[in-house]
């Protein structure tokens, strides 16, 4: 391929320019305009000046953290034990299968399950606790978001464990480590990159799940995503929406940097 004709990849380059660079530039550009089209820094002043936006951002980050943590707690053991099953690839496929079901359908299912007369409340009544308000609570938002993100956390962790050289586990046992020591000193540190990839795959979308905040959270939880959607499609204040968008992009870059693989040079197996 020394002489690959660049003409063929014209469309690809065009895509990078039009759909990667241009929109990014435009959203930053747009963030400097107010609702009536004047060039201004007012959006940023509003964002950093008023406590509401900052509080909303912190709130959104806090919820994303909770969702990520809950997802991780459920996913790591799943990925770990899944790896020990026979036909593990088939089981993994079954874990991934729900991600092919439209996200909105899954959210919709929870509207039924968590509703006032839903199955969970039936169960709670049955065990004597009595019906609770489940839908449109912060907890329901976190739970449903975690439900949707679980496969995206399991997959990278599963792959990291799958790629782990079994000799490492044997070596650790051979050197006298108990099961728990082997896990905490060898397996977990060596699969941390899978965890990081999973956190990346879960945390960022969790900041922007506006459909869930609307359908499940009952507008009680406002995430960065909800705010952006609100400004773009409801109040039509694109400038403010873009400003929040820029904040979200910055948050994303920070997350990528923190969880990025700082590879040691020439590490084995890479």
């Amino acid at each position: 391929m020394k002489r690959f004709n660049p003409a063929y990849s014209f469309l690809y380059i065009l895509w990078i320019v039009l759909f990667v660079i241009a929109p990014l530039v435009l959203i930053v550009y747009q963030s400097f305009f107010d609702i009536s089209g004047h060039l201004t820094l007012a959006n940023y002043q509003a964002y950093f000046g008023s406590g509401t936006y900052l509080k909303m951002t912190l709130n959104s980050i806090w919820y994303a953290l909770l969702i990520t943590l809950l997802t991780l707690l459920i996913s790591y053991p799943t990925a770990y034990w899944l790896n020990q099953t026979k036909n593990k690839q088939l089981w993994l496929l079954l874990i991934i299968l729900p991600t092919w079901i439209n996200l909105l359908l899954k959210a919709y299912a929870f509207i039924g399950i968590l509703s006032q007369n839903g199955s969970v409340n039936h169960f709670l009544t049955f065990v004597g606790i009595g019906p609770q308000q489940l839908l449109f609570t912060n907890a329901s938002f976190i739970f449903v978001a975690a439900y949707i993100e679980i496969p995206f956390m399991i997959l990278p962790i599963f792959n990291a464990i799958d790629e782990l050289n079994p000799s490492f586990v044997n070596a650790s046992r051979d050197l006298g480590a108990t099961n728990w020591q082997t896990f905490s000193k060898v397996i977990f540190p060596l699969t941390i990159n899978g965890v990081k990839a999973g956190v990346q795959a879960v945390f960022i979308p969790s900041l922007s799940l506006f459909m869930l905040t609307r359908l499940i959270g009952g507008n009680k939880v406002i995430t960065l995503g909800t705010a952006i959607e609100e400004h773009f499609l409801v109040t039509q204040n694109w400038g403010m929406g873009s400003t929040i968008g820029v904040v979200l992009i910055v948050a994303m870059v920070i997350i990528m940097f923190v969880t990025g693989e700082r590879r040691k040079k020439g590490r084995k197996g890479e």
Binding site: L24, L26, S208, I228, W238, G241, L248, I249
Partner: peptide, 19 residues
Amino acid sequence: NNILMVSPDVIIGASFLIF
């Protein structure tokens, strides 16, 4: 290439809308 892979959907949607 990877920017759109990692961007949240709302950012992609909003920036495309502006575009």
